[in-house]
Design a protein around this nucleic acid. Structure first.
Lengths: 126, 126
DNA sequence: AGACAAGTTGACGTGAAGGTCATTGTAACG
DNA sequence: CGTTACAATGACCTTCACGTCAACTTGTCT
């Protein structure tokens, strides 16, 4: 798959794909000087984009990608990766809790603001 | 309240407070050249920090702060602010949904990784 | 051969949210 | 009066995730 096809498929720019390659998140093969993205790259890119939506940094993602790429992993390495993943999971659960209470609070604020607005409208109507 | 007291109370650096002043999030009064932070500043800082934990940008926060500061607000202005708040609320709900599914998926991945590790351990034990 | 598209590398720019000096000011202590 | 300590200002630095632009190759069509 050429870089253009990748960009169209995943809605990213060429710059992004080259950037990910530089960061060792992707490793397209070369035909001459051109990049060709394989099935593997497509799979990884999907995961990268998902990871990004969830607020992982690219470096986090680079480490987590090894979860999906375990062929020759050592046990120690795998343990480390699981550890990282668990930490992220905890962080995400915490974030989820924060977000939830934030939503509640903001919701209340909006209701209060809405009431204030309604009062004002009654006032200027009178 | 001096800048030091503020920093200790809210666990931020002086740089941060000066930065927020430059961004018009805070407006401490001056005694000579020194900043003195009032009740109002303390209230606003609390809100700023909460907003930050929830992923608002400082510019978002600057706008939302007017929700708490409505004395001379016009209705039109208030409506705008409510609109912004509602948009953020929607974004946050979306973010929460994303986060939920991410948590679920990551959880599964970890379980899978854990099983793989267990197998490996059995192998090397045999 | 000319021209165009699509690709490449390299270098520099961007915005958010501060960090990190270096320098200068001011006030209180002994 | 000198030292310490806390403040202030200004200027540049940092990280992340790319954007932007220039200059150059390669391949293809006509």
């Amino acid at each position: 798959m050429t870089i253009r096809a990748m960009c169209d498929t995943f809605d990213v720019t060429p710059r992004t794909l080259r950037f990910y390659e530089a960061k060792e998140l992707l490793s397209p093969i070369r035909e001459g000087q051109k990049r060709l993205f394989t099935r593997r790259d497509r799979g990884r890119l999907k995961l990268i984009l998902r990871g990004k939506r969830f607020g992982f940094t690219l470096e986090d993602i680079r480490q987590l990608l090894s979860l999906y790429d375990l062929g020759d992993q050592q046990q120690t390495q795998l343990k480390r990766t699981l550890e990282i993943a668990r930490q992220r999971l905890d962080a995400m659960r915490q974030q989820r809790a924060d977000l939830d209470s934030a939503i509640g609070e903001l919701d209340e604020q909006i209701i209060a603001g809405q009431q204030l607005l309604t009062e004002k409208m009654r006032q200027s109507a009178a």
